[in-house]
Write a protein that binds this DNA or RNA. Sequence first.
DNA 1: GTGAAAGCGCTAACAC
DNA 2: GTGTTAGCGCTTTCAC
Lengths: 335, 335
Amino acid sequence: MAVTIRDVALAAGVSTATAARALGGYGHASPAARRKVTESARRLGYRPNAVARALVSRATTTVGLVVGDIENPFFAAAARGLADAMDAEGYTVLLANADEDAERERRAVDALRARQVDGMVVVPAPGASPGHLADLVAAGIPLVLLDRMVAGVDADSVLVRNTAGAADAVAHLTGLGHRRIGVVSDLPEITSSAERIAGYRRALRAAGIEPDPSLVSIGGPTQADGEAAALRLLDRPDRPTAVFTANNFMTVGALRAARALHLRVPDDLALVGFDDLDWTTLVEPPVTVVSQPVAELGRAAGERLLARLRGEDGPARRIRLPARLIVRGSCGGRP
Amino acid sequence: MAVTIRDVALAAGVSTATAARALGGYGHASPAARRKVTESARRLGYRPNAVARALVSRATTTVGLVVGDIENPFFAAAARGLADAMDAEGYTVLLANADEDAERERRAVDALRARQVDGMVVVPAPGASPGHLADLVAAGIPLVLLDRMVAGVDADSVLVRNTAGAADAVAHLTGLGHRRIGVVSDLPEITSSAERIAGYRRALRAAGIEPDPSLVSIGGPTQADGEAAALRLLDRPDRPTAVFTANNFMTVGALRAARALHLRVPDDLALVGFDDLDWTTLVEPPVTVVSQPVAELGRAAGERLLARLRGEDGPARRIRLPARLIVRGSCGGRP
DNA sequence: GTGAAAGCGCTAACAC
DNA sequence: GTGTTAGCGCTTTCAC
């Protein structure tokens, strides 16, 4: 059996209350008592039991993070940012993978809730009925939505300026003279995807081009889905001369599709991607992208969560972080 | 206040003990009682409190994972594999980032332990004094070491056949006629790094080449460290004609260094990397690599942990998963 | 089969 | 400043 605070108190010759106060650093305790207690604790190798503490204090200093796929570098970076922010305040993060699946997301949120996390940040899966998230909010458990919004859930959210970012990307293409521009995106049920598609349309119209629905190709949550979607868009006689890929998996997919079709970038096909990863500067030509502040996103979510955990009140806040176009070589022209 | 099992029992007109038995599915409970209890629970929206349960049952169905850097795709994939394996058995994983830092690792392990995780998998940081891990083992908390061993800690481990994998990589190079072959590696305090360097030496000797210590360049845990180490190796008149990079960050670094020095791969410099990532087939030439079974590694760690959690006894087991050379274009010759 | 009661390790009133 | 006491929500003997 592990050593408890009772053992420490006994050894130090004080009550458990005094021992708790000395160890926990709250309430009053004389320096002498404090010293004796700390000493006994050290000697006995006392380790506080956070579970017992949580049961009474109703706080676990643990928060949950639910992402669609931790293997997606975007989420990994966000997770890292969140962990850093929370870590600094003594919180630990419980990670759950939802596989971009609504049902698994619900289960993950429930599992986290059962464990009494103090708060949660979730990247909502497409097609989820928002019940479990609304419940969270109703129960007063701080929730922050990351990267995506969900209708009917009144929670803080930390998002990217997707529409503007996508519009910048596509405007870059129209500025280069492209008129037939396609887009490869994940499901539009994902609000960030929908916003990027909207940005694409807006930039097209701004350039006097009427959006052609047949140039919008929708994939799924994997690189393979992206490749298939890109293939559908590119493997036809009237293929676009340029394509905007709305996330990093779609970018990989489009690159593979272009290669499969022997299309040379940028000569046969110009490409702008959303989300920047290391390898984009390793390929030839380096890929022009809209760079997202990935770590900041996680950190901002952490800050929002911490603020709520500290009791901040008031209406849900929506944070929008800017994305920035980085012109490299995949659209031709001079960077 | 949330609804407790007491509320459910009251509503169902039974004792808390019966309610607990009905809900928990253990012990005896008449079908009638069971029905009444489940019904009340549903109606009241009862959610079991895992914290309270853990306090008495001394099990949290939670395991900890400590990695050096969740942004490294290698660890992300392992995390995913572990989460999948644990998830299937109802466990949740608490993730902690140690930043490849021994002190932060110790703190992470302690934080996880305070939270009473049932077991832990850790990727030990270089230079850690193994005290906190040995303590874990001594306390009877199942531990599995992932990717790396640590002296003085008698725990299960799930590792890659690093020596053989590295030797295959370097033998491929010697087979192509290279005689001056360099290696860029992370710290040799990391056992997987040391093993890869050993494999490199072994293959050299097998080809009748005496290893030249000046061709071993040691980096650190980041891509930038890898680039700097590669630069030291390559930016000199007697530079090697081929280089083996011992992990994916080093591979990126070497590629950047080669580019900075205007060295063409494979003509001026042949390259084999350890660890395969998507982008290795996106660059030109595609990179010849030793592919690690990343997800399997995490899954195997999970299975080891689950076995111990189920009470499996006996000496520490060491699992070695094979790595496989994939010949692509970065060494010249015909794939 | 079911209930009463004890207690997991800790915190938090409330006396003294 | 310190001790006593009463739980936090749940599981688990042990009677009945």
